[in-house]
Design a protein around this nucleic acid. Sequence first.
DNA 1: CACGTCACG
DNA 2: ACGTACGTGACGTGT
Length: 994
Amino acid sequence: MVINMNDIINNKQDSKEGDYLLVIDGSSLLSTQFFGNLPKEIMFAKTMEEKEKYFPKIMQTATGVYTNAVYGFLRVLLKIIKDQKPTYLAVAWDISRNTFRREIYPDYKGNRGETLEPLKDQFKLCQHVLKEMGIVQFMDERYEADDFSGTLCQKFEEEVPIRVMTKDNDYLQLITERTNLWLIHSTAKKTDELYEKYGLSKKELNVPDRTFLFTPELVEKEFGIEPSSVPSLKGIGGDSSDNIKGVPGVGEATAVALIKEYKTVENLYEILNNLDETGKKEINEYWKTLGIKRTPINALLKISDTELVGEKAAILSKTLATIKKDIDLKDLGLEQLRIHINTENAQKCFNELEFKTIKMDNAEVEDSSINNLRFEADKIKITSNLEEVETLFSNLIKLWEKNQKKLKKTKKSRNDKSDSKITIKEIKKPEYASEDAVGIKLIMENKSLVGISVYYGSEASFIIPCEGFITPDFLTSKLNGLLEKKITLAIFDIKKYLPYLNANEESPCFDVTIAGYLLEPDASTYEYQTIAEKYLELDLPSEKEVFSGQTYASLSLLDQDQYKKAACYESYVAHHIYPVLLKLLSERGLLPLFAGIEMPLVYTLYDMEQRGIRVDTNGLKDYSDQLGVSIVELEKQIFELVGVEFNINSPKQLGEILFQRLGLSYGKKTKTGYSTSAEVLEKLSSEHPVIKLILQYRQLTKLKSTYADGLVSYVEGDGRIHGTFNQTIAATGRLSSTEPNLQNIPIRMELGRKIRKVFIPEDGYLFLDADYSQIELRLLAHMSNDARLIEAYRQAQDIHRLTASEVFHTPFDEVTSAQRSNAKAVNFGIVYGISSFSLGQDLDITRKEAEEYINKYFMTYPGVKTYLDGLIEEGKETGVVKTLYGRIRPVPNLTNSNFMKRSAEERIAMNSPIQGTAADIMKLAMIHVNQVLKERKLKSRLLLQIHDELLVETHESEVEEVAKIMKEEMQQAASLSVPLEVEVANGNNWYEAK
DNA sequence: CACGTCACG
DNA sequence: ACGTACGTGACGTGT
């Protein structure tokens, strides 16, 4: 049977979305981006002098040209071109205040302050860049951006639908069925609230971030008036931003109510001017029914020769607020606005402006070069014939060898450029072939191998189901044969297949999933579909999509064509992606980390999972029963106290009981109701005796469901739990543990801690537990190179006490335990990327006091301050922060205009290098410990890693030797400017060994 | 399937 | 202008 590869690789569908014209109010967008990308010190500063102090912190080029606004503008623009895909584009600018409106009203926009110095020149700069990019722009001394926008709308809306992007709401008047508005808000929250209010999905509407899509209907719903009434509304109510006064004495609410009723200024005065005294009284009464409180009729009818009041003011204000739609644009045609970005010029500008994180190719504005992968008409052979399979493999090996010879001839030796500051101790590690790998997929069903798919170019691509003479063992031996020939195999998630793949640390196995993870550690998945799309620009159906609809539980996987497809896709992508990822890893300095840490670690983790950890199932059941008894008792008492039975586990019901039935004072609220978190409840514990019981109940049910009962279900036939360690989840480089999570077994509370007694070693064995002492703070000392912190650790001082002594101005020996524990919180806070707000909350002190602590801390350890600031700087410049071993963490939001997002990213930038380096070091230690144990043929085995702790099951006869190995390997995993301390303990269960 | 809550480093 | 600590995973509830 032969499958044509064209049937398998579906072409990317050219989803033809509707053409439309996008008109951007450039001045609006540039100024919002300017303010959004200012350092927060400037936002907080009150006086101009204070603001100026921080101008040097604004993004600028090496020569001191401010670029923050232009940067933001371009990012937004390119993102829109990519995501919202406009067909035509025009940008309109305000370039002068001397517009025709000033001729009729000299105070027009008279209330505007001076533009901030750093923004001034960016208008011209931005216009220059757009010009270079080939984007059509409109600007003129006499007209404003809105007049050009209005004119463009008028001219083209019959030809093509239009979107106008601005932050000024006087543009609302331009809205029609054909012309919609993207109104820019300063915060995402505002827009989200609006979308929620009207039950709209941002995603479906496909709108840019922080903009709300206004249609005529939505204008009507939100403001109660039609778009065309907007100038009249401003005619009455005025517009403070443009210094349009409206009718003096009439406020905004009244103006809205009047325009809602009369639509235009003219209609309103038509009636008002023809009223007699009784008519005025009647209309006053009528207006009251419209919700108009203070009667504005006198103000509306006021007449004066000297002042601008009443109708005269209304008419003038309306005129000023009316957008001009008939500027003569000569013979401008729509086609002249079609987007054709001159990418070369654009990239040149970006380089000049030193925008390293904006690349033209982000925008996908050009037709991405036709993907040659799509046109391969490769053939996949499916066979379970022994003879055929043998031939396929031997042909594959011949082909490989031929290709390698070719490659070696043309290839210059690759320099693994690495900027990691520490060399990785020599261990066994794989050597990968240049640019060429065999893509392999092992097809599993119920944890057994049912076949493999191999992809190696058109001449050696096949699927082999396990049938007849083709056994799992046979396939294992064939794959092994490839590895012995040093043939590089590219596979997704190798650890999953190690039962059938006899690979070890030195095998040239390239785990595509892990490579994807190192290149982009905060991605959500690394499935073939995602990887193919990201790096090969190839659109494949995901495994899920392939399977959807037609799976037959009764049939074995490989009897179903769609399973074959998915297997083919995966080996196909693995093969094609190898040279791409290898190059990227090399370019980004990630190869030493990949080959020296992550790949060898795969086998260590596999060993740990295979070994599993023994559990005293009876002990676990007893523990569960005891908890059960206490829970029932607590339940009874709680129901008695509140006088009604309810589900205590339901935050909804509990909230209603506590805060409505019992009337307790609620603190926080969540999206869905009252918060009943432990934090909130603890503050209430004096208000009602039931609170303490509820907290106890929570504690016990958690222990019973998650730990006691939860763990029992994971114990396998051998009396052990074989959990999974995930290597590609945590964005910092840490491991994660699932099914079950063995990294969050209780320890902080005694009751929970007791559960550790059921984790027991094999008969004749003991547990050895080793943990790094304060590894993150020590790394902070090393990485910041702060003299004082380093000295303190070299002298083995109590770091929390030292910090307390300095921060609280107390002699070292007189530091109280409360001071020490506060200082400890500060130390932690620093590692997490501190904010005074949160530290204050944590310590229950004011924000100001917390800020004092932080300031004192930074005065004590000035190197730390410099280091942390440097991390943010580095992140802004390069888009990533790095660990000592070169592991990267993207931090794209350091320039986000949303304060919250930006601040969160700053904390990430400060924390990730530290947390990540600790993870790197621990991983190295694990590989070493595992390797030494095996080399020395010891019976002891590594079982668990809990971030800074290792648990080993040690044979009684080996305790001392293994304790020494652990301590030494962990301490020597990295050589830093401060010592790494490791504490080792042993015991007959996990409780004792800690 | 999202959310709230809580367990760990 | 925003209302937060960094990094995880499992459970129960309620849509």
